[in-house]
Design a protein around this nucleic acid. Structure first.
Lengths: 217, 217
DNA sequence: TTTAGTAGTAAACAAATGAGCACTATTATG
DNA sequence: CATAATAGTGCTCATTTGTTTACTACTAAA
């Protein structure tokens, strides 16, 4: 049961978390006092005692640097998040749902969730995202409806690559063909015709498909 | 660059990790000494200095409980590992390579790596593993050579499911058909014939394919 | 106005903790 | 055999760190 903290107490709690994250051990009373301009260790102690009473910290009495967090307090920070991704070998990438007209594909409004991807399949510097496949136009390439395709916007696109493009504000997955400066999007299903790109204003190449994830039932 | 540790140094490093995990702060020299029956702080200090020198610890001088780990040292313990998996929403599952005859498929000798899978696609209680697909017998089901198939051994298998089975000590991915107590394994490629299972001694059903992961180039 | 809670001061004291010295003992290697 | 490395002893001293006392000041609520 955690009670509400004052602004000051909240600041001090945050500092303790950060200090421990950076140093591998918690701060002393004097280190906390220095950070917040409190010259008396007793002033700091008051705050710590309040944080103990309100259910956030444990203080081991008569133990140097004996501060620890009560259960559930140690929030995950962004920096730690990325380190853990590296340590464990994964990235969490956004899943794009419907694409709203006129805004970047990775804008918040287009994001409908996220998915974890093994880090051996992409580079940290790639802004990858996932897109759910609609339709069966790429079925001969082993891309089925409801599959997630993983898109990288940092890789060079060459003839024959599977790409995601925006066509009249609709995202589509197709094979990319460029010939004599003319672009075609080829389906991989005999029931569909290739698409010649004539109106470049309604066409935008988003990125290259680098992976496919499918979940049965 | 981490050099080899003596047994004693290894024990002490492990204790420091555990102590910090349990208490939220590192141990003092005297606490380490007590644990290992070393009565002099200097004896403990020797070990810590060696661990610093060999690239495992940092010791802040003249700081009580000033022990921290050098980068990459904080091994992930099983308990913490599972908690992080839950927090971040992934599982790390083994990748099975060649299957050796006569031993369980998840035996260490068969494992050639691991892969991270988003946790929304499987349950914690499932002992899932991944298997790399060889051949193109399931191409019409959108399963290509070199794809990873994710196998669950905890799900009920019904007619028409895609399964992994052992056939004469060879792992194979096929569609499962059972009719009149007779089992067939159906390829999804017109170039291959269905396989009737006649010799049940050389046949073993391993599990159901619940997912597919493909990485292009 | 009174009371309670929050936030601090300065200082002394007590306890915890690290640092260092001079040594011994054992094992492995050249 | 000699040397180096590892592993410890007992002890003292220096530094760090927490605890306590007696106080002030401000704000909010009853």
């Amino acid at each position: 049961m955690k009670n509400k903290l004052t602004d000051r107490q909240e600041e001090i709690l945050t500092f303790i978390k950060q200090f421990r994250e950076e140093n591998g051990y918690p701060p002393t009373l004097r280190e906390i006092g220095k950070k917040f301009g409190i010259s008396s260790t007793f002033g700091v102690k008051r705050h710590l005692d309040a944080l103990v009473k309100k259910g956030y910290l444990n203080i081991e009495s008569n133990a140097s640097r004996g501060i620890s967090f009560q259960k559930g307090v140690e929030e995950i920070q962004d920096e730690k998040f990325f380190r853990i991704q590296e340590d464990y070998g994964f990235y969490k990438i956004p899943v794009v749902g419907r694409v709203a007209a006129g805004i970047p594909i990775l804008a918040e409004e287009n994001i409908e969730g996220s998915v974890v991807i093994d880090s051996s399949f992409m580079k940290k510097s790639e802004d990858c995202f996932a897109l759910k496949v609609k339709g069966d136009s790429m079925i001969n390439a082993g891309i089925f409806e409801n599959d997630l395709v993983i898109i990288s916007n940092k890789r060079e696109i060459v003839n024959g690559d599977i790409v995601v493009a925006l066509l009249e504000d609709e995202a589509t997955v197709k094979t990319y063909e460029i010939k004599n400066k003319s672009i075609r999007l080829l389906p991989q299903n005999n029931n569909y015709q290739p698409i010649d790109i004539k109106d470049v204003e309604n066409f935008k190449l988003i990125g290259k498909v680098i992976g496919i994830v499918r979940w049965l039932n």
